[in-house]
Write a protein that binds this DNA or RNA. Structure first.
Lengths: 94, 94
DNA sequence: TATTTTGGTTTATAAAATAAACTACTTTAT
DNA sequence: ATAAAGTAGTTTATTTTATAAACCAAAATA
């Protein structure tokens, strides 16, 4: 009847981050913060969770003297996102 | 970019309940419990929240000696569900 | 009449989201 | 050179949610 929704993805901010990453394949922390409108603290926590789940890869480096955090979606992340979307259908009728 | 997701509906169980109610227009507590697989306690709490939000109407009566809780979706509930689905599109790409 | 079952509610606990505070460094202005 | 302000985050604390466990009242059953 109703398929379980992946709790990692069933979060407004994490879903937005995944949605963005699937579109661009790679993005900076600041880009994600601007696009989602999230606070840096919240974004930091949610990125960590997506990383822990293996849904994204996080690369920390320096760019023009400043720390820079780059995020990339992984293959399992794409799969999980697709499955989440499929599962959602069961709730949305038809 | 990303539309806010109604927090009342962005819950697996509450979304399932709304999905069921939109299909049938009226349902018993026990029906909802069976279809969703939720525990009675959890379902009781979530039904209360949907009621507090004005998304469903709850009628408590007795049927063949037993208490019976009937739930019906309201017009604002249907509207909120539809808006939730629309908002979700912004996360699912395309 | 004791036990189990039905149909729930209430309370307690665990997990999640969010905000506030903090770290570490850089740039700019004085 | 030094203070103030800005960048790019992380950590910690607080609030909110979700979930489970315990409970309640009445009815059915043994």
């Amino acid at each position: 009847m109703f398929k379980d929704l992946d709790p990692i993805l069933h979060s407004q901010l994490r879903l937005a981050v995944m949605s963005l990453l699937i579109g661009v394949k790679e993005a900076e922390f600041t880009f994600l913060r601007e696009k989602t409108g999230a606070t840096a603290g919240n974004l930091s926590v949610q990125i960590q969770k997506l990383k822990d789940a293996g849904y994204i890869e996080v690369i920390k480096q320096f760019k023009e003297n400043y720390p820079q955090t780059i995020c990339k979606v992984t293959a399992p992340g794409i799969k999980a996102f697709e499955e989440y979307v499929t599962s959602l259908q069961s709730y949305l009728g038809k």
